[in-house]
Design a protein around this nucleic acid. Structure first.
Lengths: 111, 111
DNA sequence: TTCGTTTATCGTCGATTAACGATTGCAAAG
DNA sequence: CTTTGCAATCGTTAATCGACGATAAACGAA
């Protein structure tokens, strides 16, 4: 583990960046929205809904899981995915904080 | 311009992903927050505040500009950066939409 | 014009990402 | 026990990212 420039930023900046990065692909956005709409949660359903290969879906699910946004539970031969409640609550908090820090600017900037 | 798998997703999924990707680095989060706090906006100020090289800051600013989150105006030898009002409003809208689509889940998922 | 200041771009490097097919691992069904 | 079906992992490839130093471009001042 080398010391990256990354480590020079605040913890909250880094956490927010991790969340945003996880959201930074249309497939992962689509997965989250599918998980929110349907309870179904089954990985195979996601594969049929999405225009990408099974292995790629699995990869994206892994990244979402690593970011704490999604959790998967093995249910026999299939795996049931759903939104990670605690992780998503944290993500909501961080994103709302950003929206609060950067409000709709009332006036144009001086320059 | 080849046809990417990317193009199989909805426009709103792609737009949101572009925004999220732009937010997916702590330096870019920090830049946005600095631009929100201070009116200063000058590129040089950002460089002295951030733990990364000038060329790297410039690179991040370019990406933020490409995502429509920031705009820069040349003011003599220096460049004054500020948050892009219209772009940020769009970003706010998309992010709020995501937070609305994925509300705090009331009940645990079935699996 | 020449110089110093400020910012953007270039070129490079290693690391990471995104995608796929193929393979493996596992649990239920037969 | 063997087969089947689902999902994760492996291995590969091309592309993108992040960082830096060096260079170029633009401008104001001397």
């Amino acid at each position: 583990m080398a010391l990256h420039k990354r480590d020079q930023f605040t913890s909250s900046e880094q956490q927010l960046a991790v969340i945003a990065k996880a959201l930074g692909h249309p497939a992962r956005i689509a997965i989250l929205q599918l998980l929110a709409q349907r309870q179904s949660c089954v990985c195979g359903e996601l594969v049929t809904e999405l225009p990408i290969a099974q292995s790629t879906v699995s990869q994206h699910l892994k990244e979402l899981k690593a970011a704490g946004l999604v959790q998967g539970e093995v249910d026999g031969p299939r795996v049931c995915y759903c939104i990670d409640r605690a992780g998503w609550a944290r993500a909501r908090h961080l994103l709302s904080g950003l929206l609060a820090d950067l409000p709709e600017p009332a006036a144009a900037c001086a320059c």
